[in-house]
């Protein structure tokens, strides 16, 4: 198989997409937002619970989409739980750089390694928006909700 395909659809990604973590609705969410990719019609809803300490206490997502968008959402929800808003934004910045094939800075080793499973997306420019949908939606939820679009 084509190496770039193998990297894109590696086992970790497929596992996340088949068995997404934090999937479902979060009752009593403090922040929610909906994301939409007009290119394919995929939708996602992100539910966040911000704790009093300013950290993301819980996060869930709902939606249907391709393996890349589902895996990305699953991975994201795993990673941002417990983070402050600023930390989540730094993580997002790193992620966006990673999938666009740009230099990734400001991430700790652990986060970087975890995110790295998505690095294969950079070889598929047409699929970058699939990977970033959940993240843009999360950002929109943190900024007070509403809706996010990939374009």
């Amino acid at each position: 198989m084509d190496d770039s395909l193998r990297e894109l659809y590696q086992e970790v990604i497929l596992d996340h997409s088949r068995h997404p973590r934090h999937f479902g609705k979060l009752e009593h969410a403090t922040n929610t937002a909906q994301g939409y990719n007009p290119l394919c019609g995929d939708r996602i809803t992100i539910y966040l619970m911000l704790g009093e300490n300013g950290r993301i206490a819980d996060v869930k997502f709902e939606g249907k989409g391709c393996a890349i968008s589902q895996a990305s959402a699953s991975l994201m929800t795993d990673m941002i739980t417990g983070k402050t808003i600023t930390e989540a934004e730094i993580l997002m910045g790193g992620f966006l750089n990673l999938v666009k094939g740009e230099k990734v800075e400001g991430l700790n080793e652990d986060d970087r390694e975890t995110l790295n499973v998505m690095a294969g997306v950079s070889a598929f420019p047409m699929r970058v928006k699939c990977a970033t949908l959940a993240w843009h939606t999360m950002k929109s939820a943190l900024e007070g909700g509403g809706s996010a679009k990939t374009e």
Binding site: Y9, G65, A67, I68, F124
Partner: peptide
């Protein structure tokens, strides 16, 4: 299998199809 995943793999086999709405 989502249409976009399918189309991406087909593309790498040289097969251009449309995926989406």
């Amino acid at each position: 299998m989502h249409a976009h995943d399918l189309a991406t793999i087909l593309d790498r086999e040289g097969v251009a199809v449309r995926a989406g709405h």
